[in-house]
């Protein structure tokens, strides 16, 4: 289960390698490194375009899933009433729907063993979210470098500062088609980074909105992992629906 979650989070980051991972690969004395996105495309132009198109489709799917999760979280937070939590909210809207799971978790915040819930399984979920936050922070705290290789040879590299400054270096032998491939790669890398920032904003603001209405000591500690779990549940539900053959 933990492995599947780690794989999902890794997939969301796509080809991004954050500073920590790069520093580890280069040795402990290495100074802080930029986040790096390297895409090594097949030498055949059609294969390379196909690969980028697949990456683009995956990005769009991920964006749609996050947007839907954000909409459902907003709807839940607007409708949720903490004083009404123990009875109505616990009635499942559908069997084990993400909303009913979140409502059940929040309902437990009114009970004395609230803090014990952080031991398991929310402790694990909290650790996952902390890891996600740390990776996004690393990804946005410095500049990022996007590199395109074709058949193992680097043809273009673009450094992007966090406010959008661009410095691009091109191999002098680069072709028009290869230029287009690198530009698509830069777009993919930056769009995925923006999507990760959006996901972080969705979870943190959604959790804040819910937590403001809780009054039980320690209950706020539960909200972030509960909301993160909700987002994961919505996305898993969508993926399961999409996997059903029509």
């Amino acid at each position: 289960m933990a492995d599947r979650t780690a794989a999902w989070q890794d997939a969301l980051f796509g080809d991004w390698q954050v500073n920590d991972a790069i520093a580890k690969s280069l040795g402990s004395d290495t100074p802080p490194q930029p986040s790096l996105w390297v895409m090594d495309l097949p030498a055949d132009a059609r294969d390379a375009s196909r690969h980028l198109a697949q990456q683009q489709s995956q990005l769009q799917r991920d964006q749609r899933e996050i947007t839907l999760a954000a909409q459902r979280l907003t709807a839940f937070a607007d409708a949720w009433d903490p004083s009404d939590a123990t009875e109505k909210s616990l009635e499942p809207q559908s069997e084990a729907s993400p909303e009913s799971r979140l409502a059940a978790t929040l309902a437990l915040t009114n009970q004395p063993q609230t803090k014990g819930l952080l031991d398991d399984p929310l402790q694990t979920v909290r650790a996952e979210f902390d890891r996600f936050v740390e990776r996004v922070r690393e990804l946005t705290s410095s500049y990022a470098q996007v590199e395109t290789r074709i058949g193992g040879r680097a043809i273009g590299s673009t450094i992007v500062g966090w406010t959008g400054d661009f410095k691009s270096a091109w191999d002098e032998a680069v072709s028009v088609e290869q230029i287009a491939l690198h530009q698509q790669n830069v777009h993919l890398a930056l769009a995925r980074r923006a999507m990760l920032v959006k996901l972080l904003i969705v979870v943190s603001t959604g959790a804040a909105k819910i937590a403001l209405r809780l009054a039980t000591p320690g209950a706020q500690l539960l909200v972030i992992p509960a909301v993160w779990q909700f987002v994961k549940d919505v996305i898993a539900q969508m993926q399961a629906l999409n996997a059903v053959p029509s």
Partner: peptide, 22 residues
């Protein structure tokens, strides 16, 4: 907003990855 475009001789781009800062 600063945008700079550079060129390098063939097979020189990969050395850029190992630099320490922008």
């Amino acid at each position: 907003l600063e945008v700079r475009t550079f060129t390098t001789p063939e097979d020189q781009i990969q050395v850029l990855v190992k630099a320490k800062n922008i």
